[in-house]
Amino acid sequence: MLRTIKDLFDSVLAPARNAPEREHSLQLATAVLLVEVMRADDGFSAGERDAVVDAMNRTYPMAPDELDRLLDLAHEHARSASDFHQFTSVLNDRLSTDEKIRIVEYMWRVAYADDHLGDHENHLMSRIAGLLNVTHGQYIAAKMRARD
């Protein structure tokens, strides 16, 4: 009987223990997608980096040094990732549709930050929005809000 009670307590407390790790994986997944949009064209500008920083601060406020470390890690993951599924699945599992649309809008802001929207950026945005299960109408509305 004591074993059963202990198992019950462990199952209740386990999500709380894993909360920081779950939050970090959500932050990293978001940062990787934003960084990937920034890296989509030939180079990235200070405006694009500022757009990534702004999006991350709006979504997951954190200390500047913590954000710098997260973005460094996001760059590493973006360079070594073979696809986006590992990142979009984290967001799909944990974010609402409205939150995912907001991430897509932030990605558009990054894409527009250098005043040039390349074909590769456009294709990348469409691909990621599809993986996030954002409808075409929601995708276009996010694009329009980001452009305005």
Results as ranks from 00 to 15, higher is better:
His75Lys: 12
Arg127His: 09
Ala55Glu: 08
Leu67Tyr: 04
Asn57Pro: 04
Ala81Lys: 06
Gly43Ala: 13
Met144Ile: 14
Thr135Tyr: 01
Ala46Pro: 00
Ser25Thr: 14
Tyr60Val: 07
Trp108Pro: 08
Ser96Val: 05
Arg58Ala: 15
Asn18His: 00
Ala146Val: 02
Val35Thr: 14
Gln86Asp: 02
Leu117Gly: 05
Lys100Ile: 11
Asp148Tyr: 07
Glu121Cys: 06
Pro61Gly: 03
Ala55Met: 09
Ala113Glu: 06
Ala51Val: 13
Asp54His: 13
Arg147Phe: 02
Met38Arg: 07
Gln27Met: 15
Asp93Ser: 11
Asp72Val: 08
Arg58Trp: 05
Ala46Phe: 02
Ala141Tyr: 06
Met38His: 03
Leu117Ile: 14
Leu70His: 10
Ser45Val: 07
Tyr112Val: 09
Thr135Ile: 03
Asp41Arg: 09
Asp72Pro: 01
Asp98Thr: 13
Leu91Arg: 02
His123Ile: 09
Leu132Pro: 04
Gly118Pro: 00
Lys100Pro: 08
Glu99Gly: 08
Glu21Phe: 06
Leu73Cys: 03
His75Ile: 13
Arg147Asp: 00
Ala142Tyr: 02
Ala113Lys: 06
Arg127Glu: 12
Ala146Trp: 00
Ile5Gln: 07
His120Gln: 11
Met144Leu: 11
Leu13Cys: 01
Asp41His: 13
Leu95Asn: 02
Asp10Thr: 03
Glu66Trp: 04
Leu28Met: 12
Gln138His: 12
Tyr106Ser: 14
Ala113Phe: 12
Ala51Thr: 10
Asp10Pro: 00
Leu117Val: 13
Leu33Thr: 12
Glu121Phe: 05
Phe9Trp: 08
Met125His: 10
Ala55Cys: 10
Leu73Gly: 01
His116Thr: 12
Phe44Arg: 04
Thr97Tyr: 10
Glu48Gly: 09
Pro64Met: 02
Pro64Ile: 05
Ala113Asp: 07
Arg58Gly: 15
Arg22Ala: 12
Val35Gln: 09
Arg79Val: 11
Pro64Arg: 04
Arg102Gly: 10
Ala19Glu: 05
Lys6Asn: 01
Ala16His: 01
Arg17Tyr: 00
Lys100Leu: 12
His24Arg: 14
Asp119Val: 11
Tyr112Met: 10
Met56Gly: 11
Leu26Ala: 07
Ala46Arg: 11
Leu34Gln: 09
Glu105Tyr: 08
Asn133Cys: 08
His77Ala: 12
Glu121Met: 06
Glu99His: 10
Asp114Cys: 07
Ser82Leu: 04
Leu71Pro: 06
Glu36Gln: 14
Leu117Tyr: 06
Thr59Glu: 05
Leu132Gln: 06
Leu73Thr: 14
Ala141Thr: 13
Gly43Arg: 15
Asp98Trp: 03
Asp10Ser: 03
Glu48Asn: 06
Ala29Gln: 10
His116Ser: 13
